Amino acid sequence: METETETETETETERPWTSAELEERLRAVAEQRYHDRHPFNVRMHEGTLTPAEVRRWITNRFHYQQHIPVKDALITAKLGSSELRRTWVRRIEDHDGREGDEGGIERWLRLGEAAGLDRADLLSGRGVLPGVRLAVEGYVNFCRLRPRLDAVAASLTELSAPDLMRRRVAAFERHYPWIDAEGLAYFRERVHQGRRDSGEALALVLRWARTREEQERAVAALAFKCDVLWSLLDAVEHSEPEDLR
C-alpha cells in the first residue's frame, strides 16, 4: 500500500520547477561545467601556451566557428513564428556577416592571420583534429534532430561567454603581445552579442519548459553542450604535432 511519504516524494520529483528554480539550475550548469575550467583554457589565460599551441587552438576552434551559423539555421527552421525566426536569424548574420559588418567568421580568420596562420589553410580545414570534427558534428546533429527546446537550451553556454571573452582579451593582450591587438576583435564583439543572445535564449527556455520532463531536458541539453566544448579542448590539449593534418 502506498504511504503518504511515498506519495509526497513522487509528487516532489514530478513537480515542475518554478522559472526561478529552472534558471538557477541552468546557471549552475553553465558555471560549473563551462569550458573556462578546462586545463587548456586555464593555461591560455595564465599565459603559458606556446605559439604552436595557440595556433592549434585557433585552427581547431575555427572549425566550430564555421558551424555556428549552420546549427543556428537548423534552429531557425524549428521556430514557429516570423518574430522568433527574425530574432534567431540575426545570429546567423552575426557570424556570416552582413552589409557593413564583416561577421564573426571573418573576425576569426583575422585572428588566425594575426597569430601567423594562413587564411587559406584555415578555410581548408587542414589541421582540424578528428576529435574536434566529431564534437562539432555531434552538436550540429543535436540541433538538427532534437526539439527546439533542447536546441535552444544547448546554446545557453552563452550565459558564461561574456565574462570569458573579457578575461580572454585581457590575457591575450598581456601574455601574447605577438598577436596584433586588432586580431582580438572577435572576442570583444562577443561580449555584447553573448549577453544579448543568452538573454533571449533563456527567456525562450523558461517560457517553453513547463513540465518537469521538459525542464530536465533543457538542463541536460545545456550539460551536453558543455561536454561538446570540453571535448573540443580535450582533443586540442592532448594532440601531438603529428596529429595535425
Score class of each variant (00 low, 15 high):
Met1Pro: 11
Met1Thr: 12
Glu4His: 09
Thr5Lys: 11
Thr7Leu: 14
Glu8Thr: 10
Glu8Arg: 10
Glu10Met: 08
Pro16Lys: 03
Thr18Val: 05
Ala20Asn: 04
Ala20His: 12
Glu21His: 02
Glu21Pro: 00
Glu24Gly: 04
Glu24Thr: 13
Arg25Cys: 02
Arg25Glu: 14
Arg27Gln: 12
Ala28Met: 02
Ala28Phe: 03
Tyr34Pro: 00
Tyr34Asn: 05
His35Tyr: 11
Asp36Gly: 09
His38Cys: 02
Pro39Lys: 08
Pro39Asp: 10
Pro39Cys: 07
Arg43Asp: 07
Arg43Cys: 00
Arg43Glu: 03
Met44Trp: 11
His45Gly: 05
Glu46Phe: 04
Thr48Asn: 05
Leu49Thr: 07
Pro51Ile: 06
Ala52Phe: 03
Val54Met: 12
His63Asp: 09
Gln66His: 03
Ile68Tyr: 09
Ile68Phe: 12
Lys71Trp: 15
Thr76Gly: 00
Ala77Glu: 12
Gly80His: 11
Ser81Gln: 13
Glu83Asp: 15
Arg85Pro: 10
Arg85Met: 12
Arg86Ile: 09
Arg86Thr: 14
Thr87Gln: 06
Ile92Met: 08
Asp94Trp: 13
Gly97Glu: 13
Gly100His: 03
Gly104Asn: 13
Gly104Leu: 10
Gly104Trp: 09
Ile105Trp: 09
Ile105Thr: 13
Glu106Asp: 15
Glu106Asn: 07
Arg107Gln: 15
Arg107Pro: 03
Trp108Thr: 05
Leu109Phe: 03
Ala115Asn: 05
Leu117Glu: 11
Asp118Arg: 12
Asp121Pro: 00
Ser124Arg: 12
Ser124Met: 10
Gly125Asn: 13
Pro130Ser: 14
Pro130Val: 14
Pro130Cys: 15
Arg133Asp: 01
Arg133Asn: 02
Leu134Val: 11
Ala135Val: 03
Ala135Met: 07
Val140Asn: 14
Asn141Lys: 10
Phe142Trp: 10
Leu145Gln: 14
Arg146Gly: 07
Leu149Ala: 08
Leu149Val: 05
Leu149Lys: 04
Leu149Gln: 01
Leu149Asn: 01
Thr157Lys: 00
Glu158Thr: 02
Leu159Trp: 07
Leu159Ile: 13
Ser160Asp: 05
Pro162Tyr: 14
Asp163Cys: 00
Arg167Ala: 15
Arg168Asn: 09
Arg168Tyr: 02
His175Met: 09
Pro177Gly: 13
Ile179Lys: 07
Asp180Ser: 08
Asp180Trp: 11
Ala181Tyr: 11
Ala185Gly: 13
Tyr186Gly: 01
Arg188Trp: 09
Val191Gly: 03
Gln193Asn: 12
Gly199Val: 03
Leu204Asn: 00
Leu204His: 06
Val205Glu: 01
Trp208His: 09
Ala209His: 03
Thr211Ser: 15
Arg212Cys: 11
Arg212Thr: 05
Glu213Ile: 03
Glu213Arg: 15
Glu213Leu: 10
Glu213Thr: 06
Glu213Ala: 14
Glu213His: 08
Arg217Glu: 11
Ala218Phe: 06
Ala221Asp: 09
Ala221Phe: 07
Ala221Ser: 15
Leu222Lys: 01
Lys225Gln: 14
Cys226Val: 01
Val228His: 06
Leu229Lys: 02
Leu229Asn: 04
Trp230Val: 05
Ser231Ala: 11
Val236Cys: 09
Glu237Lys: 04
Glu240Met: 08
Pro241Tyr: 00
